[in-house]
């Protein structure tokens, strides 16, 4: 029993949980509105796209790779699908749109995987290149105009709530249904990482690619899996994002990769591969969302957000670096 708890919450996760709770207390003390049900639901809502992407990136990081093209992929999935649905009215069913966008994302993710695996190219530079290709192609060939009249099924989706409540002060709070996608992805990926051979293979490849190959893991399949999953999840997020902000802007989501990388790294994923858990990633997302959403509550103008995220990335990666260094001290001299 205790071992199960320990597995779910390692030391890093416990620290993170503590920091998150502490931060919530501080913000709540500064502005009691933080504790409202409405705020909680709002935070959950903003956490959906960020969370799904972070979990996708977590798997990529575990396998020793990186991807910074997923915002471009998400936008491509979203915009192409919406354009298509407006032209072809018969496609306008939510499952069909989600499937199309996810499929577009999957295809683009697999394209990344092919370049990274078959030509053994550095993932950072490859995905920098594909991001620019995807965005350029989207704006050149599909369109530049923001779609404000979204397909009705997406509008309907954005209005579907899992839970609604009218508060004492007359305001209403609603929990978006898209949170179910987030929960589903988190659970599915957590199970896949723990209970499938390909998931364990991602950890093995991330720790030592040559040894994983020697043991007999199919590295090609693992690379296709991690980058394909990242792309597919980005495609899914595209539609969810459109439904949250109720438009589809092809210039959107630029720079989101930084927030996502920050969340994953804060959650304990190692940029050098082999380490990371879904629990940690979720806590990383929670911390980012609470921090970001609360800057407004404590009265900082929105321009400070980027400064804050930058600082959080620097501080959290520094703490991780200092901790692994002290763990390794004395290793050199036997």
């Amino acid at each position: 029993m205790t071992s199960r708890v320990r597995r779910l919450f390692g030391r890093h996760e416990m620290v993170l949980l503590g920091v998150t709770v502490l931060l919530s207390i501080v913000i709540g003390a500064l502005n009691p509105a933080f504790y409202s049900l409405q705020n909680a639901f709002d935070l959950l809502k903003t956490s959906v796209p960020l969370g799904i992407l972070t979990i996708g990136l977590l798997v990529v990081l575990i396998s020793g790779g990186i991807d910074i093209s997923f915002p471009a992929i998400a936008v491509a999935g979203m915009y192409i699908t919406c354009t298509l649905a407006i032209d072809v009215r018969s496609l306008d069913h939510l499952p069909a749109l989600l499937a199309i966008s996810t499929a577009i994302g999957l295809a683009l993710g697999l394209f990344n995987a092919v370049l990274i695996h078959f030509f053994r190219l550095p993932a950072l530079i490859v995905t920098l290149g594909t991001a620019s290709v995807i965005r350029g192609a989207l704006l050149e060939f599909v369109g530049t105009r923001t779609i404000t009249n979204l397909p009705p099924s997406i509008i309907a989706f954005s209005r579907t709530n899992l839970f609604e409540a009218t508060l004492a002060n007359g305001a209403s709070a609603a929990l978006t249904v898209s949170i179910l996608f987030f929960a589903g992805v988190a659970i599915a990926v957590a199970l896949a990482l723990r209970y499938t051979v390909i998931g364990r293979g991602a950890y093995a490849v991330g720790a030592d690619l040559a040894a994983a190959e020697r043991v007999g893991f199919n590295v090609r399949r693992i690379h296709l899996f991690v980058y394909g999953l990242m792309g597919a999840l980005a495609g899914l997020v595209g539609i969810i994002h459109a439904s949250i902000i109720r438009n589809a802007n092809p210039l959107d989501l630029d720079g989101l990769e930084l927030t996502v990388i920050a969340a994953a790294v804060i959650g304990g994923a190692s940029i050098t591969g082999g380490r990371g858990t879904v629990t940690g990633a979720l806590l990383g997302v929670a911390l980012m969302v609470i921090m970001d959403g609360s800057l407004v509550l404590v009265g900082l103008p929105s321009q400070w957000h980027q400064v804050f995220i930058g600082l959080v990335v620097l501080v959290s990666t520094s703490i991780t670096a200092l901790r692994t260094r002290s763990a390794r001290a004395g290793e050199i001299a036997r």
């Binding site: 930084l258 103008p301 400070w304 400064v307 930058g310 620097l314 670096a321």
Partner: peptide, 25 residues
């Protein structure tokens, strides 16, 4: 601190751009 340069500069990319935004609005 020995943070990988990619993480450091991703962070400072945000930080410096953010500061620029704060300064100019």
């Amino acid at each position: 601190v020995r943070v990988p340069s990619i993480l450091v500069t991703l962070g400072t990319l945000q930080l410096f751009t953010g500061l620029a935004l704060v300064l100019t609005g």
